[in-house]
Structures are given as C-alpha cells and as structure tokens.
Design a protein around this nucleic acid. Structure first.
Lengths: 158, 158
DNA sequence: AAAGATTGATCGATCAATCTTG
DNA sequence: CAAGATTGATCGATCAATCTTT
C-alpha cells in the first residue's frame, strides 16, 4: 500500500527558467576571460585589476578606501590587499593611511595608473559596447537592467 | 585656428548603459562565490566543480568528452584536466578513453558522484530560484533570456 | 601535421591567523 | 574588543611545453 513520502520533491526550474539560468551561468563563466584577454594584451591587466583602477579613476582625488573598493569589486579584502601590492609594485597605485582615522587605508591612483586607464578604456569600452549593447534593443536593455538590479540586490543583502 | 583632432573620441556608454554594465559586472564578479559558498558547505565543491558533475549527470551514460565539457563549462581544457584529477581522487569521476577514437577522453560520473549531485541539487536549485526567478516577472525573465542569449552568442563566436 | 589531452611551473585567490587603531 | 587591513600558507587557475592518436 502506498504511503506518504517523507522527502518532498523540491521545486525544480521550468524548461524556460533552466535555459535562462544556463545561459547566465555561461556568461558569468566566460565574460571575465573574454574581456580580460584584451586587457591583458593591451595593458597587462586582469579584468578585476582594470576595474579597480577604473573605479579609482572615477573617485574625487582618485582615492578610495580598501574596504569600499572590495565591496565595489565584489571581492574580499584580503584578495584586494594582495592585488594592491601587485599594482603598487608596478607603480600604478599607492597606499595612504587616512589621516583622520588610522584604521582606514586609501588606495590612490598614481599618474601612471591614471594614464594607463585613460589609454586602455576606449578599447575596452568599445568591446563592451559591441558585445552587450550593440545587439540589444532599448526594450531588452531596460529589461536586462531591471532584472540585473534585482539579482544584484539579492546578492548584496547577504 | 581650430584644426581637426587626429584622435577620435570613442563612443562612450550612456548613463543608462553604464548602469546596466556595472550591475552586470557586479553580478558576474559575485555570483560564483555567492552560490559557491553553499556548495562548498554542503558538498565541498566549487561552483565550477558542481556544474561539471551536474552536466555529466544530464548526459546519457553520465559521460562526456573532456573537450565538450570544457566548452560547456566555459573553461579551458587544461583547467578541466586538473579539475578532473581532483574529482577523480575523490572518487566522483573517472576517465575512459573513447574506444572508437583514442584521441578522445570521456569523463564519467561514478555512482558516488551521481549520488552527490542528487543530494546537492535541491538546495542549490532552491538558491538559484530564490535569487533569480522569485524576484522576476515573466516579462523580465523573457527579456533577460533573450538578452543573455545574444550576449552568449557574441562570446561563443570567438 | 593537427586535434585532444595531460603535465609541471608559475601566478593569482582563498583561508586562517595576525596586527593596528580607535 | 571590534573593525579595517595585512600577511603567509595552501589551494586552484593559467601558461607553455609535451605527449598521443589519427
């Protein structure tokens, strides 16, 4: 005689959702190396290294706290500290302790670092435009934006 | 007297596009570690390790060629080979040379590997559903799907 | 020779202390 | 002691050979 199963079948994804998820998975897995190849070639920078420098270049004073930078780069502080060491050895960045509170460290873009971003940005942006925006309609782009905003919010609250 | 600049200003992104791109960048940077944390905890697997096992579990015979698997995982063959070594040491996967053509190697899921996927999948899928699909409307989901399809196609042709 | 796959060396990322400042 | 940051050790990823089979 049939009896009730104790293990409940989980809610699986529909075929449609599964397709979407697999494509997102593929994009997440391949985008960094795809865009990174050119950055490596043009400026000997990885995807994340470029975005650290680019983030600094947008800040007033070209400076930012390590901990803020880590959040923005979606990375851990430890990884960022090692990464900053490498960039500092190349003279692209320097460290400065916050004079108002010694616990904070600012990463500051050097002139050479800024020059490298300015030199590298056009090619990189062109590649992003080609890959992402040249293929999307305005409607698709806005839907993509709101979908990503929600996903990012879900990640950020943790 | 003004003369024509030799350097052309590149086509920058609009404010809207920039927002979309930064959010995509954030998702790409954080999603693997976000989902990987639970996989590490539940099954001692990284994001990519889980997807290699999951991909095999969907194949007839639970087997797949290394080179195919590499494309599917958005990874290089070398990385996959090292990764397969680690999984094989844990008894989750084994290698089999293709009997019809000795150049090909199949990665085959062991019973233990399959059991691990079956055990781990529900929790992982639940997390994906929560993060991605529970927040999106049907319209957003379809727009996300077609946008990602286009981006993935742009990556794949290279 | 070309395609598939592996290997060893090097470089980067992660993890668990540790240190410093407030 | 808590928060920010760094360091050293270990683990994984990348790169440049190398090997095998066709």
């Amino acid at each position: 005689m049939a009896r009730k199963e104790t293990k409940v079948e989980p809610t699986w994804l529909t075929a449609d959702e599964l397709h979407t998820w697999k494509t997102l998975h593929y994009v997440v897995a391949t985008l960094p190396s795809f865009l990174g190849e050119r950055l490596r070639c043009d400026a000997d920078l990885s995807f994340i290294e470029y975005y650290v420098l680019a983030a600094l270049s947008e800040q007033p004073g070209h400076a930012m706290r390590m901990s803020q930078l880590a959040v923005l780069a979606g990375s851990e502080l430890s990884r960022l500290s090692h990464l900053t060491n490498r960039l500092a050895k190349r003279g692209l960045v320097r460290r400065e302790t916050d004079p108002t509170d010694g616990r904070f460290t600012n990463a500051v873009l050097t002139d050479a670092g800024y020059a490298l971003v300015v030199e590298t940005a056009p090619g990189h942006v062109e590649q992003v435009r080609q890959l992402i925006f040249s293929t999307l309609t305005k409607t698709e782009q806005h839907a993509l934006r709101s979908a990503l905003d929600k996903i990012a919010a879900g990640i950020a609250i943790c």
